Simulated scan of single mutants.
Amino acid sequence: MTRVMTQLELLRELEPVAEANVNRHLSMARDWHPHDYVPWDEGRNFAAMGGEDWEPEHSRLDDVAKAAMITNLLTEDNLPSYHREIAENFSPDGAWGTWVGRWTAEENRHGIVMRDYLVVTRGVDPVALENARMEHMTAGFFPGNNNGLLRSVAYVTFQELATRVSHRNTGKACNDPVADRMLQRIAADENLHMIFYRNICEAALDVAPAQTLMAITEILKQFQMPGAGMPNFRRNGVLMAKHGIYDLRQHLDEVVQPVLRKWNIFERDFGSEGAQTLDELGTFLEDLERQAVKFEDMRDRSLARDAARRERAEAAV
């Protein structure tokens, strides 16, 4: 029976991979400045400065775009919690510490630019947004079973890719070229972050295959986006799923399956120790496919009902 590697052993064994991928990231990452993505000439004072406070008609975003922008921004706002999690599961030293600091600094730009955009363009109610930020950050983010290097790296691999998909689709939903350009820039960052974590996890599969497979399987079976505890998350999540921002089909086809294929999960030999876990993962994916088909059917029926109601309303005018 293969001995389970300790956290310290894994960190030491994988540090050369972390160092190579930090260097790779720094060679590919493009510095950018949040102020370059905000239409400042659209801004005006609120009542406290002699202007006018927010009213719903000030926003040019529809309900779907508002829900997605708020959800994505509040997710980015909880960065202190995420920093704590990866700092505790990685190390403050060497390549690990360099990555934690660099990743945190890059992620911070996302919340800065999104909030500036929403406040300047009056896209959402800034008072409600600030109240939600206070509530969400006060509650923090505690990922439960994501403790330890392997679970942490597996989780952020899928989460970063999911966030990229969500940001990219939110940009399209805003129907505003400024927002789309901004969110494309954020999505590009998220993709590079995902690649770092994906490569670390791939190396872990080589070093501790059965142990890493178990971590991946556990994470996928319990996966939740980091914003799950924020105010109105369920309502906003339903709107986002219904209108193609992020849904179960996208989660399976654009996030889970591509990563598993990159890792060659089902072509690897995990020995007798990993065989049962591999079967468990396969069964989970089959069930996720059934859930995705069921979701698509329900969504199509719901959208058809919405379209019929709009037609009746227009005919009655």
Rank of each mutant, 00 (worst) to 15 (best):
K172S: 15
H167D: 06
N175E: 07
R168N: 08
D63K: 07
S152V: 04
E107D: 10
L74Q: 15
G171F: 04
C174A: 12
G94L: 05
V100I: 12
A139M: 04
P143W: 02
E106H: 14
E88F: 00
H136G: 14
V100Y: 05
D63I: 07
G140D: 07
G111T: 06
C174P: 03
N146V: 14
Y117G: 05
V127E: 08
I112W: 13
Q159C: 00
T138C: 00
W99A: 06
V113K: 02
G111R: 05
E135T: 15
V124H: 06
R84W: 04
G123M: 10
E160N: 04
D116I: 10
A68E: 09
N175G: 05
E160I: 01
V178K: 03
E85S: 06
V119M: 13
K66W: 06
H167I: 00
D62S: 03
V165Q: 00
I112F: 11
A105T: 14
R164K: 10
R102M: 14
N175Y: 03
E85G: 02
R60L: 02
M114Q: 11
I70N: 08
D125M: 06
G123C: 10
T157A: 04
T163S: 04
A68V: 02
A132D: 15
R168M: 08
N147K: 15
F141H: 03
F142S: 14
V119Y: 14
D125Y: 05
I86M: 07
D116V: 09
F158C: 02
R164A: 05
I112V: 13
K172C: 12
P177G: 12
W96D: 00
V127K: 04
S59Y: 01
G111H: 04
M134T: 11
I70E: 12
I112L: 13
A128K: 07
R122D: 02
D77A: 10
D77C: 10
V124W: 01
E106K: 09
W96L: 02
H110Y: 08
Y117Q: 10
E160K: 08
V119E: 13
N147Q: 15
R115N: 06
V113M: 10
E85A: 07
R102I: 14
I86H: 05
D116R: 14
T71C: 10
E88C: 01
M69E: 10
P143N: 06
T170A: 12
R168Q: 09
V127G: 05
P143R: 05
S166P: 00
A68M: 08
A162Q: 11
E107I: 11
T121S: 08
E130I: 14
R133M: 12
Y117H: 07
L118W: 12
V119Q: 11
V124C: 06
V100W: 03
N78L: 08
L74Y: 11
N108L: 13
R115G: 04
W103L: 07
V64H: 00
A67W: 01
L149Q: 01
M134L: 15
Y155W: 09
H136L: 15
R122E: 06
V165T: 02
A162C: 11
T104W: 15
E135Y: 11
N147R: 15
T98K: 15
